[in-house]
Design a protein around this nucleic acid. Structure first.
Lengths: 157, 157
DNA sequence: CTCGATGCAAACAGTTTGCACGATT
DNA sequence: AATCGTGCAAACTGTTTGCATCGAG
């Protein structure tokens, strides 16, 4: 189903940009990945598929995918920026386990609603929001204290 | 008041680290800044004060300040990581205006509570959470649509 | 036919690291 | 005295950019 491609194409046209096979391949690759991905993984996948696409093109395409609503930044850990496709999915937030790196996706309508209320209170028009919780998942919470105490870099959201 | 210094010192001792004048000066500088700051600003301030402190030392000290609960990452926009001191302050979240860069700090107890509930639901033990909302502040929301349409990099949270 | 898009490699910016020296415990 | 911390400069890493070429509209 290339419904999303049609949308992306419309976005490109609207912006006066061209619709190239590279862009299409990147779009497809992104949606062929199930979870979160970073540029390097995407590059690797495209390389596997022998679609000779350069990193530069990927870097240049990502903002377009974001602006067209296809993907968004999911989370960051130091220099590692990870994305996820959102087109056609419902919004969710993340819990990231500092112990094992596990990512739990969750959503709470009440929280969303309260955020909107907050925005209204401040006369703020939201485009996007991101909620990330760092901590320990069920498995890791036993070992918790110990593993933090001897300073290593924490995982971020 | 060097209450925080006492705490920081205790943290260092606990970690078997030394308590150097550089670390102290950095701590002081951080708390002498009112708002958000990045490494470069901190470096500039320290340089102004003629405390000959290198960037390297700042980079090496920041994780210590974070782990000791003195500061936290406040927000990020591309490569720019900004911190804020949190020791002695109450927690808050951010709204960032994509138009003018304005940052609104807010807090909603109900949201916090619902987050904790979510964590309990997933057996997750939270350490920290971060909620950021991107959008347009009151002033900018009039011009909104127009300014996004011709693709520039969006400000992140 | 005309711009925008691509690949490549060089340039960048923020951050990290190896080393020799100096300071804290 | 034994480490740990510091400054410096070099190294790194992820990302961006200039340029010549290619191709979509």
């Amino acid at each position: 189903m290339d419904y999303r491609y049609r949308i992306f194409k419309a976005f490109l046209k609207f912006r006066g940009l061209k619709c190239t096979p590279e862009r299409r391949r990147i779009l497809d690759a992104v949606f062929s990945l199930e979870g979160h991905f970073d540029v390097e993984e995407l590059y690797g996948l495209l390389r596997e598929k022998r679609s000779g696409i350069s990193r530069a093109t990927i870097y240049r395409t990502i903002p377009l995918l974001i602006e067209s609503g296809m993907i968004r930044e999911a989370l960051r850990c130091r220099k590692n920026v990870r994305y996820e496709h959102i087109f056609g999915h419902k919004h969710h937030d993340h819990m990231v386990c500092v112990g094992c790196g596990k990512v739990i996706e969750f959503k709470d309508d009440k929280i969303e609603e309260l955020q909107d209320r907050m925005c209204r209170l401040y006369g703020f028009t939201p485009i996007e929001h991101r909620l990330g919780i760092r901590g320990y998942c069920k498995k890791c919470s036993g070992l918790a204290k110990r593993s933090v105490s001897r300073g290593k870099r924490a995982v971020n959201t």
